[in-house]
């Protein structure tokens, strides 16, 4: 029940929903989920493994049916392919597709292949059969790192290559609570959460980092860090003059923080790099301000 409470709060729902969240999570049969890994680093999958509300074993044994996920599934090769095709066939129009990684489109998609198919073919084939497509991470959502200039593989977002309207959970990686919250929202209400104009759930990406930042008071008072090895840095002054992208970035890091509330980059004295914004690898670089 604790995880239901944390999730319900993150999703911006009233506490009256805690019981309903718990019930929604125990539904049978468990909703099928297919996870495709494209041009990615597996950071988004690792981040999902860090979920604590619920724990990952609860998520995959009790809540969803994770029918295909290359990083954790038992079978390889043909047997793995069978798992994919069985689920797509049996659950056509009923499964949730989760994608991490961008889609390499250069050289006819040959920069990335799985089981002899290009990732481009794979996502175009499976995407339209899903009930909904959730892009986890900035790469699947907007192209992300592989698409950074000069975009050597002509990597694109899932929405760009499939024409699908995707739910985007950006971040490099995103906080697992935002991904799980989106899935739970779906199980609870039978629909995806309200999104902003970039496809991001408003419950997580509705506000600027800057407006939620515990260092905001220092910004208002004109108290800035200008050197990482300084008294100002030790006092936790505002990082804006070091290049912080908090004023341009929508995410809930300052509120939910990372790894069970352990910290977040600004708390670790580092400027926000705006990793949940489209094109941040080019738009926001250089990340540090010269001084």
């Amino acid at each position: 029940m604790k995880y239901c409470t944390v999730l319900t709060a993150t999703m911006g729902l009233s506490s009256a929903y805690v019981g309903k969240v718990a019930a929604a999570l125990a539904s049978a049969p468990r909703p099928p989920v297919i996870w495709l890994a494209l041009a990615e680093c597996t950071g988004c999958a690792e981040s999902t493994l860090r979920t604590m509300y619920p724990w990952i074993d609860e998520l995959i044994l009790d809540i969803i049916s994770l029918d295909y996920h290359e990083t954790i599934m038992a079978p390889s090769g043909e047997a793995a392919e069978k798992s994919l095709h069985d689920s797509v066939t049996k659950n056509a129009g009923k499964f949730i597709l989760v994608v991490d990684g961008a889609v390499p489109t250069g050289d006819n998609g040959n920069f990335g292949t799985v089981a002899g198919k290009t990732m481009l073919e794979l996502v175009k084939e499976i995407g339209p059969k899903a009930m909904a497509t959730v892009c986890i991470g900035t790469c699947a959502s907007y192209g992300g790192l592989p698409a950074a200039a000069p975009n050597p593989t002509q990597a694109k977002s899932v929405a760009e290559v499939t024409g699908l309207k995707t739910v985007n959970i950006p971040g490099c990686p995103p906080n697992p609570i935002n991904f799980v919250g989106t899935i739970v929202n779906f199980l609870l209400f039978g629909k995806l959460p309200a999104l902003d104009d970039k496809g991001r759930p408003l419950f997580a990406y509705g506000q600027l980092i800057h407006d939620q930042c515990p260092r905001r008071g220092h910004f208002e008072a004109g108290e800035f860090v200008t050197n990482f090895n300084s008294e100002e840095a030790r006092k936790g002054f505002c990082l804006y003059q070091m290049g912080c992208k908090g004023p341009e970035t929508y995410n809930n890091c300052p509120i939910v923080k990372w790894n069970d509330g352990t910290s977040w980059p600004v708390q670790a004295g580092h400027p926000c790099i705006g990793c949940s914004e489209p094109n941040f690898w080019d738009k926001f670089t250089p990340f540090f301000k010269s001084s």
């Binding site: 990686p173 990482f228 977040w264 980059p265 670790a268 004295g269 580092h270």
Partner: peptide, 19 residues
């Protein structure tokens, strides 16, 4: 600051002075 993909490096060390 977080895991995966920590964010606290700078030349000659780290940024987490408050920690």
């Amino acid at each position: 600051g977080k895991n995966p993909h920590i964010q606290s490096m700078t030349y000659g060390g780290v940024t987490c002075a408050m920690d």
